Simulated scan of single mutants.
Amino acid sequence: MDQIKNIFCIGRNYANHAKELGNEIPSSPILFSKPTHSLVKADGKSISFPKNRGEIHHELEIVLYIETEVPEIFEVEEVVSKMALGIDFTLRDEQAVLKEKGHPWLKAKGFRNSSVITEFWSFPGIDACTKTDFSLLKNGHTVQIGNITDMMFDFKEIIKQCNQYFGLGKGDILYTGTPEGVGAIKHGDTLALRWGNEEKGRFSVTMEQNCF
Results as ranks from 00 to 15, higher is better:
Gly169Glu: 14
Leu106Ala: 14
Gly146Val: 10
Asp189Thr: 07
Phe123Gly: 04
Val116Gln: 07
Phe111Met: 03
Gln164His: 14
Glu78Tyr: 01
His103Val: 08
Ser122Arg: 06
Phe89Ala: 05
Glu199Gly: 02
Val116His: 08
Gln144Pro: 04
Val76His: 07
Pro124Glu: 12
Tyr165His: 13
Glu119Phe: 02
Gln164Val: 00
Gly201Val: 03
Ile158Arg: 05
Asp88Trp: 02
Asp189Gly: 05
Val182Ala: 11
Asn197Met: 11
Gly181Trp: 02
Glu180Ala: 15
Phe120Gln: 07
Arg92Met: 04
Val182Cys: 05
Glu77Phe: 00
Phe153Tyr: 12
Ala84Ile: 06
Glu198Val: 15
Gly125Asn: 06
Lys186His: 09
Ser122His: 03
Lys131Asp: 14
Met83Asp: 04
Gln144Ile: 10
Gln144Ser: 06
Ala84Gln: 01
Lys156Leu: 01
Ser81Glu: 05
Ile173Arg: 09
Ala184Ser: 15
Ala108Phe: 09
Leu85Glu: 14
Leu85Lys: 10
Ser81Arg: 05
Trp105Gln: 04
Ile117Met: 14
Met151Glu: 07
Glu199Tyr: 02
Lys101Ile: 10
Ile117His: 08
Leu191Cys: 07
Ser135Lys: 15
Phe120Cys: 09
Gly201Trp: 03
Ser135Pro: 04
Lys131Trp: 08
Glu198Phe: 13
Gly181Ala: 00
Val182Tyr: 05
Thr132Trp: 01
Gln144Trp: 08
Leu137Tyr: 15
Asp154Phe: 03
Trp105Pro: 00
Lys101Asp: 12
Gly140Trp: 10
Thr90Ser: 15
Val116Pro: 04
His187Gln: 12
Asn113Gln: 06
Glu180Asn: 11
Asp127Asn: 13
Cys129Thr: 12
Pro104Asn: 06
Asp150Gln: 14
Asp127Ser: 13
Lys107Ala: 14
Lys82Met: 12
Phe203Cys: 11
Gly167Asp: 02
Ala96Glu: 13
Glu180His: 10
Gly201Ala: 05
Lys109Trp: 09
Ile173His: 06
Gly183Ala: 04
Ala96Tyr: 03
Ser135Val: 04
Arg194Ser: 14
Leu85Gln: 14
Trp105Met: 09
Val143Arg: 11
Thr149Phe: 03
Lys156Ile: 05
Gln161Pro: 00
Tyr175Trp: 08
Gly183Asp: 03
Arg112Asp: 13
Ile148Thr: 07
Val97Ile: 12
His141Val: 15
Cys162Ala: 11
Thr190Ala: 10
Phe153Ala: 09
Val143Pro: 09
Glu100Tyr: 00
Gly110Arg: 04
